[in-house]
């Protein structure tokens, strides 16, 4: 029952949220489910960490929000990537790839 999100490398949650929203605008719960699905259950997100990340991204102008009805006719806040967010995601993906490759090289060398 541990908080699996703490297993996330520091700062990567922001990147995952951005990635999730890159496909389509989504509400908070949707983001949770999508991340958990895509990680095949390795990451579990609690609400606190998620909404903190969302607040942070929104204040940085990387995502923007809009109240919209859901398919079940509830009102939910949908988040979408801004232009700046998309750029940031590209950068971070590239940087991440570089770092992972580098770490992999080090680990394989030993």
């Amino acid at each position: 029952m541990g908080d699996k999100s703490s297993d996330l490398v520091q700062g990567t949650l922001d990147m995952l949220v951005l990635k999730t929203l890159a496909l389509e605008a989504m509400h908070g719960y949707g983001i949770t489910i999508r991340i958990e699905q895509m990680s095949r259950g390795v990451f579990r997100l609690n609400a606190g960490s998620l909404f903190l990340a969302i607040q942070r991204l929104e204040r940085d102008g990387l995502i923007e929000s809009e109240w919209k009805p859901t398919e079940n006719n509830r009102r939910a806040k949908y988040y979408a990537l801004t232009q700046k967010g998309r750029k940031r995601l590209d950068n971070e993906t590239r940087e991440w790839g570089r770092q992972v490759a580098a770490i992999a090289r080090i680990l394989e060398a030993s």
Binding site: G28, Y29, T32, A76
Partner: peptide, 8 residues
């Protein structure tokens, strides 16, 4: 927002 989240 959190209410909706919980409901969902």
């Amino acid at each position: 927002e959190l209410g909706t989240y919980q409901e969902m």
